[in-house]
Design a protein around this nucleic acid. Sequence first.
DNA 1: TTGAAAGCGCTAACAA
DNA 2: TTGTTAGCGCTTTCAA
Lengths: 333, 333
Amino acid sequence: MKKNVATIRDVAAAAGVSTATVSKFVNGAQRFSPAVEATIKEVIAKLGYRSNPLAQSMITGRTRSIGLSILDINNPHFTSIVKGANRVALAHNYTLLLVDTEENADRERPLVEALSRRVDGLILFSRMVESEMDWLMDLGKPLVYFGRPTRLPLQWVSSDDTRGAAMLARHLLSLGHRRFAYLRFARARRDHDRLDAIRACLAEHDLDLDVYEGGTPTSAEGERVCSAILLGGNPPDALICYNDLMALGFMKAAQTLGFSLPDDLSVAAFDNISYGQYTSPALTTVDMQSERMGATAMEKLIAAIDGKPEPETGMIEPQLILRASTSRRNASA
Amino acid sequence: MKKNVATIRDVAAAAGVSTATVSKFVNGAQRFSPAVEATIKEVIAKLGYRSNPLAQSMITGRTRSIGLSILDINNPHFTSIVKGANRVALAHNYTLLLVDTEENADRERPLVEALSRRVDGLILFSRMVESEMDWLMDLGKPLVYFGRPTRLPLQWVSSDDTRGAAMLARHLLSLGHRRFAYLRFARARRDHDRLDAIRACLAEHDLDLDVYEGGTPTSAEGERVCSAILLGGNPPDALICYNDLMALGFMKAAQTLGFSLPDDLSVAAFDNISYGQYTSPALTTVDMQSERMGATAMEKLIAAIDGKPEPETGMIEPQLILRASTSRRNASA
DNA sequence: TTGAAAGCGCTAACAA
DNA sequence: TTGTTAGCGCTTTCAA
């Protein structure tokens, strides 16, 4: 199996030129006499030579790869981000190195530190609290962060969660809902933005918000919490979930409990993962433009690597997607 | 931003020892006099030294990373595979490099060739026809292939598609269904196994199979094909789709067309992606054990890298998951 | 137990 | 247009 792969020296020897010449040829660095060009080309083909990217990187200091750290590869929100980032990376001839920290903040640092030595730049989704992220600055690599850092001078890309949550809350208010609940996921920073924005909207109408704690941002958790929300003595007529996954689980459990959606209550969430279309009722959601977020982050990072300025804001506008899981409040409910 | 990171020489100089000593210390290669050990440790901490994995790999020829090439990161089947593979890789202290070829066979070769130089081994999901895959053998790296190669002497991991499809077909037969249709995705090799197995089961009962061609293994394609299947003049009373994604799309479109599932027809598919639980009716499916497949592939690959024998078969047993999208044939239909 | 020295495969001045 | 030379940061004999 293990072949002894041809090195640049083998090519140089066989072609009767110096390694420098071969190197320049391979990198298209200059023009050559037809004779030399022909022989080099031929020898390379014959030997099946391909330059060793590791050796190349050692000298140039560039790896042509980008590290992307996400929180859960099974969450479609993140795969869309990866998709967007990957497209841009490919277009710029970069390879993507992916790390999945599995929502485990402790695992992040070692993984990212190891990753950082193999790439030209990093894009990070993190659950670490900002006060414990100073080490990021010592990595010595360009970096783009998902979310808005308050203290660290990091490049960032963020969805406008405040805006998105407000849009959703206002829409539900306009449908006549008055008893609101929010199923949160407090470890996410965006959760706090969403919660605050929803509260603010409701406050304008002198309405309260019931808040339920979700332990993980998953459909299983949505299922688990369902009975507490619906049978806990103070059922809402509109529920907002931290993300679509939780809403999917919640809706299934609610229907199992005999509730009818959206007649008994409206349900909505965030992300616009595609599977929200396939439930009954289909899920109303706030599209956070995951793929665009990934693409934007990658564009910013590559610009930073190339030393180009990127003054533009990294804030991404969300869009409200209305589907059948939200409807006008049922007067009889 | 760019720090000049400490090298092994900086450490050696500051500690008053040779680089060789530092190297051995870092790699835990031998024992040292307490004095030396203490100073080195101290200097490393002070300088924040971390060895450069690129330089290390150049010499040792090992990168401690694995390349994984998948067909579509937005397909939960593949993310589960990645999850499984990543778990095992992490446990063995390997980093995962991910490549998404986006169902584009032409893109595979350049991406995989580039990847192969940066990793110790490769795990491949491919849409290339086997007759055009000989170049894989020249990569000079251990390799595990998803699916069963007929000619190339590759290590492989595969789901037992023949078995899974037969289980599903027999179950539908036992429910009284007689008019079967299969929505295929012919570019996948597994599709042929499934098709053949379904045909064989039906043949035992002198039944035919209507076959519809899907262009992509996506929910959008399932939606698109729906009307042709249901309103094409020969509607089935049981439809099997190549994968869950297609079934999700199909079911939504069928309900939009006014069909009632599973009363008007039973629908089932393959993969057991989690979103099949959240549709109404929930989707009957064949669990292909995606996560296990990923884990098994990684285990085999790491064993191969370590030069250990791995004689065990890579065939993975599927499991039929019964849900509400399949039911006894409705006599009035 | 420690160090000197020779590279790994390649690029980047600088000369020719 | 081509070649010489000196490394990148590290490991690895081999000798001390």
